[in-house]
Design a protein around this nucleic acid. Structure first.
Length: 275
DNA sequence: CGAGAGTCCTGAAGGC
DNA sequence: TGCCTTCAGGACTCTC
């Protein structure tokens, strides 16, 4: 289940392998993702050069000669998607839905068992798309801070956990890192967003940044089906403070970690450390 | 407008 | 052993 750190890790892994390569062929074996993969994807990408890959939230944007009649490949990994490079001879496995064959023999393979991901085409020189229009700030940019959270949350009654997971508030904070960041900030996830003070939001913005940055430094948190860009599955254990640790002792105070449901999502917290 | 529920999908895990 | 149910999750989309 890629969250922002996994998406960023994927971007960094793919970047040197695709930049300045020419797309030779696009093979779509199964177009049934969250939205159908455009039937003309091969036609618009083939024989064009990839200038780079950028990221907006959990979306990856491949610049495919956007400056000269091309456009952008817009990718989302959903919750089970991964993109990695394989050799030209590697036979596709189950759920390997798309191959992007590049000059020089590299193949970028998109794998997504649950098909919650997306692969769309944006024609033209600018990466504008309805999916990107209303996204909030990037959590790791200086423009994102506690004051932004505080101002955006006034009069909001939803819980602070659901609030920071709202992509219009800030992008890239998924279910796992939301629980983790709230724990480090000492904030109870159920607190209505509009009742969290400015000092606490300043702290929370910092813990969101540090939690995500730490995960990126670790190369993505390698959750169950996450696969890094080189095709190596992330096998190291995810070292969480609270997520997935129901009934286990809090790493700080030893109280049992609690698990609740918020908006059909599981939330984990320590009732003693988070008030 | 905000809030909450529904929805897509597959695979893992648990119950019987 | 094997079938069935439940759950997990991102985030769009719908309803109230």
């Amino acid at each position: 289940m890629p969250e922002l750190p996994e998406v960023e890790t994927t971007r960094r892994g793919l970047l040197p392998k695709v930049t300045n390569r020419r797309v030779r062929r696009v093979m779509v074996r199964d177009a049934r993702l969250r939205w159908p993969v455009p039937a003309n994807l091969g036609k618009v990408m083939e024989q064009r050069v990839i200038h780079g890959i950028s990221r907006r939230g959990k979306y990856l944007l491949w610049d495919v000669e956007s400056s000269s009649g091309g456009g952008f490949l817009l990718c989302h990994l959903g919750m089970s998607g991964s993109m990695f490079t394989v050799s030209a001879r590697a036979r596709p496995a189950l759920h390997d839905h798309i191959d992007i064959v590049l000059s020089g023999g590299t193949v970028v393979r998109y794998h997504d068992p649950r098909r919650f991901g997306a692969m769309l085409w944006i024609a033209g020189p600018n990466p504008t798309h309805p999916l990107l229009d209303r996204l909030g700030p990037e959590p790791l940019e200086p423009s994102f801070d506690g004051l932004h959270l505080f101002r955006d949350s006034r009069s909001r009654s939803m819980s602070v956990k659901q609030f920071i997971m709202d992509g219009q508030v800030v992008v890239g904070v998924g279910n796992i890192y939301a629980s983790e960041a709230l724990f480090v900030a000492g904030i109870r996830p159920t607190t209505p967003a509009g009742r969290v003070s400015l000092p606490r939001y300043l702290r929370l913005a910092d813990t969101i940044k540090s939690t995500l940055a730490k995960a990126i430094r670790a190369g993505g948190s390698s959750l169950r089906d996450y696969v890094k860009a080189d095709g190596q599955s992330g096998t190291f254990q995810l070292d969480t403070q609270v997520y997935g640790r129901e009934s286990q002792p809090c790493r700080v105070c030893k109280s049992p970690i609690r698990s609740i449901r918020q908006g059909q999502r599981s939330t984990f917290y320590c009732a003693r450390c988070q008030t």
